[in-house]
């Protein structure tokens, strides 16, 4: 397809409305992610949310290490690199230096739930006014498919050749539930990126995760169940199906904590610390 032809196609005809478009917070760079990797969907959702909230110009992104190392290449916001696992500590420093900024971290499962577990939980427990996105695809992607803290029992990886075993590696870490148990956390939820319905839910949860920061309520956390077609050795469509069939039964979707005013949970409003 030549460029002129594409230009014509992108012009709405009479009676047509453009109902799906990109947004100015997401730049045009093609991602380095593998075909079918759902990081791209998560990126789009984050950028749309920042755009809709109108806060991109005062946003600082703290990137992680792993496949998400280069997150900052795709967002039109100020970006800062953190060492592996330390994004929430770096974000804490940014928060203390820039009280007016909107700050988010974007971290994979190895980064946030293994090497950065301490920094993540303590930043959350302090109630740092930051928003963290946790991409859980049960495997180390960038380094080539090794076991992650969220690897499912029985799942084969390049360091669990016969499958993860409870008696040897322990079970998968449930970070959203752990986060919900911390007093400083204002919002903790788990969504999935496998389907249109779940992606739309994720978008709503993402907005909440930012709103608790903007309203000064505390730490916003959203876990996103994602796939890794490359290291799962599946095609992208099968990988998305695997999220539903294998991951959601282990990592239930839902809102585990919500301190916002319109929260449906009366119990939380009465001050019981653990959702």
């Amino acid at each position: 397809m030549d460029a002129r032809n594409l230009e014509n196609l992108l012009r709405p005809a009479e009676g047509e409305t453009l109902v799906f478009d990109t947004n100015p917070v997401l730049n045009e760079r093609l991602t380095h992610y593998c075909p079918g990797c759902l990081h791209g969907i998560a990126h789009r959702l984050v950028s749309e949310t920042l755009h809709e909230l109108g806060v991109a110009e005062r946003t600082i992104l703290v990137a992680a290490v792993g496949c998400a190392t280069f997150t900052y290449d795709y967002f039109n916001v100020d970006g800062l690199e953190a060492p592996h696992g330390r994004a929430c500590a770096v974000a804490t420093g940014v928060r203390r230096a820039r009280p007016e900024a909107v700050i988010f971290t974007y971290q994979g499962d190895g980064d946030m739930a293994a090497i950065g577990m301490a920094e993540s939980l303590h930043a959350a427990n302090r109630g740092e006014r930051i928003t963290s996105f946790f991409i859980n695809n049960t495997v180390y992607g960038m380094t080539g498919g090794q076991m992650a803290p969220t690897t499912l029992l029985g799942q084969k990886t390049t360091t669990t050749h016969d499958g993860r075993r409870m008696d040897r590696e322990g079970g998968p870490v449930h970070l959203a539930e752990m986060m919900a148990g911390l007093d400083g956390v204002a919002f903790a939820a788990r969504c999935a990126l496998d389907s249109v319905k779940h992606v739309r839910e994720a978008k709503k949860a993402m907005r909440k995760a930012f709103e608790v920061q903007l309203e000064g309520l505390g730490f916003g956390f959203l876990e996103l169940l994602s796939s890794c077609p490359t290291n799962w050795h599946m095609d992208p469509v099968a990988a998305s199906k695997h999220i539903v069939e294998a991951m959601i039964p282990v990592f239930p979707l839902g809102v585990f904590k919500d301190k916002t005013a319109d929260s449906p949970s009366v119990v939380q409003k009465e001050g019981v610390p653990h959702a």
Binding site: I60, V62, L80, A82, P83, R86, A89, V90, A91, T92, G93, V94, R95, R96, A97, R98, A118, E119, H122
Partner: peptide, 18 residues
């Protein structure tokens, strides 16, 4: 901070803000 590892990274974050 919860550790020196966290402390130095908080420093990185704040110092990165000038």
């Amino acid at each position: 901070a919860e550790s020196e590892v966290a402390a130095v990274n908080m420093l990185l974050g704040a110092a990165a803000c000038g």
